[in-house]
Amino acid sequence: MLALDRIGKVYPNGVNALERFSADIRLGEIVAIIGGSGCGKSTLLRAIAGLDRATTGTVTLDDIKVTAPHAKIGIIFQEPRLLPWLSVADNIGFGLSDLPANIRREKVAAALARVGLSDKAGAWPRELSGGQAQRVAIARALVPQPEVLLLDEPFSALDAFTRRDLQDHLLDLWADTRPTLLLVTHDVDEAVVLADRVLVMRPRPGRLFEEIKINLARPRDRASPHFDNFKRRVLTALDRSLDRGVPDADAKSTTGEAMWW
């Protein structure tokens, strides 16, 4: 279990980016974090990844306190961040350098096949499209079999069609080993299609605002009325999260739905 206990972050320049964020996330759960820009989502993820130190609070994974990058926690960023001097295959195998070469090769080949890029094994990262590069990044993060995979707006730089494709793909890959997924997004559709639970955050300072359980069986039909219903609930929560000083949900404009971010 990933336990986040009252995590807070004040940057050296005095920005209070995150305050008292707590959540318990079961192994294998998919949690989406959604919220306006600047409400501390990346800050939170970087603290969990051990890339930045939280000012207050603790991250514990299976009763072990996380303060630095952890073998069981992987992260995928908005950009693929592939190493341009390594081939696609070597990028995927980057985190497996402790393994003997033949096992590494096998795992990399399996991962390549799994993300549908076997024919690109020897290609350079610059020869990939944005969607392909992000698939390589996903494979690279998943191949060491992390228990927790953090994703910081992983698909937001892609076009809508590729994004959908990768969302389905991510679910597919998740089903293989069922790691915990903690996904930051600003796409309501994405949150509802992927997550068991959506955490809505509010800004200044970043805080947890509301939690919405998505009780929908997978695979989810994006066109179903239930799906729409959950989407509406998330949007409403988002709207309220930005309506500072007006905590109740009654008075509300429809334009806000489109403008929340």
Partner: peptide
């Protein structure tokens, strides 16, 4: 810095960071 962070998430030691990230990047 973003590439260095990739090295950090894979918990490269100082020398490994130099060999696997910094050297190829500065070449």
């Amino acid at each position: 810095r973003k590439i260095v962070e990739v090295g950090r998430t894979f918990r490269l030691s100082g020398p490994a960071m130099i060999r696997r990230i910094l050297l190829p990047a500065v070449l």
